[in-house]
Simulated scan of single mutants.
Amino acid sequence: MTAFAEVIGDPIAQSKSPLLHGFWLDRLGLEAEYRRSHVTTAQLADFFQTRRGDPSWRGCNVTLPHKQSVIPLLDRVDPLATAIGAVNTVVSRDGLLIGHNTDAPGFLEPLRPCLAERHLLRTARILGTGGAARAIAHALWEEGFTLIIAGRDVAKAQDIAGAFNPADTHVCTLETFANPIDFDWGEPGDRLDLVVNATSLGMTGQPPLAVDFSNIPPGAILYDAVYAPLETPLLAEARARGHATIDGLSMLIGQGRLAFEHFFGVAAPADPESDALLRARLTA
């Protein structure tokens, strides 16, 4: 029996997870597989019932629209996934189905060098109110950030903010960042500013995210969760203005590393050569 894991969702053809995990399996020489399975909401309960009885099944990544609806079907959900209210990784252990959320720690992976430094103030502007935004908010809150959450629907932004200390959390409309402001930011000083696009705006086939850079502090890092295209209009403008940028593949790879170790019990390769080859495969 060949051990396998998979990704489930509806639709699922667009998922890059098989390329990601397949690369690591080949790189490590492991005799295992990673598959893609189209599972509708109506099929979800039967899917997990069937997989429970398969000793070669190691678990699955979960993508839209199942990250919330999968939770009642599991035997255990780890505290982080419970706090976020979403599961993106299900692991089979000793007959139990255990839910995790690797989006939050995966998002932080490329920020680790910055987070290792000391700052008097850390502020994150999170644009978006979906599942990714919720995971990102939890990740950054645990790292001591004051949060500004912006969405088309302020009520959704308030729902995310409600999980945190109201004194250090603020909400506004997405349009706030599209309008110019007259504000003297001064020098960056001993602070860490982060701006995150957690919407689908800027993705291939979607309009760009409207941001007026008068709203962005000097020295801020621009992080876009979109990875198709790899350089979104937001990142292109940020780079032209001298900001450090992080693209969406960084989050995809970061969350994938954690899921891979859950499934196969070994760490995914993280050396520079492997990372370069992986990025080339994912963007080919």
Rank of each mutant, 00 (worst) to 15 (best):
M251V: 06
G242M: 04
I216N: 03
L234R: 04
L249R: 11
P207C: 09
P233Q: 15
I216K: 06
A225F: 07
F213T: 10
A244K: 07
T232D: 05
A198N: 15
P188H: 15
D224I: 03
T169Y: 09
D212Q: 10
G189H: 15
S250T: 07
L192A: 10
G219A: 03
P217R: 08
F213H: 06
A178Y: 08
M251K: 02
A198Q: 05
R241H: 02
G219N: 09
G189W: 07
L192M: 13
P208A: 14
A225G: 04
V171E: 01
T173W: 01
N179Y: 06
L209N: 05
S200R: 12
D193T: 13
Q255R: 03
S214R: 07
L194P: 13
D184Q: 13
L252R: 13
D182Q: 07
L209F: 00
A244R: 15
D190H: 15
V211N: 10
R239Y: 06
A225E: 06
S214E: 06
E187G: 03
P208N: 15
P229W: 13
F183C: 02
A178W: 02
P188V: 12
S214N: 00
G205S: 03
E187D: 10
L201H: 07
E231N: 12
T204L: 05
A236Y: 03
V195Y: 12
D224H: 01
D212T: 11
V196L: 15
L234I: 09
I246A: 02
L174K: 10
G202S: 08
N197H: 12
C172K: 08
I221T: 10
G256D: 14
Y227E: 12
T176Y: 07
G205N: 14
M203G: 08
L258I: 13
G186D: 08
Q255A: 09
A210P: 02
A167T: 06
L222C: 04
T173S: 10
T204R: 14
E237D: 15
F177V: 02
D190T: 13
G254N: 12
L249E: 04
E231P: 01
I181M: 00
I181G: 00
L222A: 01
P217N: 04
Y227G: 11
I246M: 10
L222F: 11
A240K: 09
A178D: 02
I221L: 12
G248K: 15
D182I: 01
T199G: 10
L209I: 02
L252P: 08
S214K: 03
R239D: 09
D168P: 00
G256Y: 01
V195S: 07
N197A: 14
L258E: 04
Y227W: 14
D184A: 11
T232C: 05
H243T: 00
L234P: 12
L235G: 00
T169D: 07
G254Q: 03
A198M: 03
L258G: 04
I246T: 14
A240N: 01
P188N: 09
V196E: 11
